[in-house]
Design a protein around this nucleic acid. Structure first.
Lengths: 111, 111
DNA sequence: GATATCGATTAGTAGATACTAATGCATTAG
DNA sequence: CTAATGCATTAGTATCTACTAATCGATATC
């Protein structure tokens, strides 16, 4: 089954399917902004590999970038996860399972 | 970065990353129960391929099976998506984005 | 019992993908 | 101006993956 241009769900899922890449994304999510060099440290792979992963993540719409001098700062783009949320939503799993948590959360935020 | 046994998030994401396999899962989700033969029809791939995809999905905990005679009936196992939900939950994306929808949904269910 | 059907499994293959090492291009520092 | 740093990109490689075609075991049908 050929998809000439993969649909957004596929793109996002594929981006998240690799543990190294997901680890990169998680670090981006946890920091307000982070450079490629910082991401490389402790990643276990080379700087080139990190740049490649960031490219995938950017294409998937999961991160955004800002160049400043010779550094490039990456930041999270959580809207990129929307296709995934929509997919799960459609298959119903979500609300039913998380219902209780939800209710509590709503109370906390707006009692 | 080696993961001898891939963690559950990776397993689930990988299972969902392939469009053909995801299409199979979607059909399982939409039917109460469905056989391998039925899934093969209109899938665009061979019966062998479908069996292989079902194996992945089963390993990911996304489907369950029941043999009856020479047929095997597959059904959805939505709890298999829990690792994905948990992952998204942890990175916060979920609630913030869906907040409005949520609120409405809650009202409908329990006004 | 012989034959057909269902589904899993296997071997083989083409293409994808995650990585490294090397290089190139800016930008900053000396 | 020259050297060093930060990041992207490229070419090359090993491994993984999605598929087919073929086969096998089990169950059902004739």
């Amino acid at each position: 089954m050929i998809e000439v241009v993969p649909n957004p769900v596929t793109t996002v899922m594929r981006a998240l399917a690799d543990p190294t890449r997901r680890a990169v994304l998680e670090r981006v999510f946890e920091s307000k902004e982070i450079t490629v060099g910082e991401l490389t440290i402790g990643s276990g792979v080379t700087q080139g590999a990190i740049s490649q992963h960031l490219k995938s993540l950017k294409q998937a719409g999961l991160v955004a970038e800002r160049a400043e001098g010779r550094n490039v700062y990456y930041r999270a783009a959580p809207q990129g996860l929307e296709p995934l949320v929509a997919w799960m939503d459609h298959y119903g799993v979500f609300w039913r399972e998380r219902f209780q948590n939800l209710r509590e959360l709503l109370k906390e935020i707006d009692p």
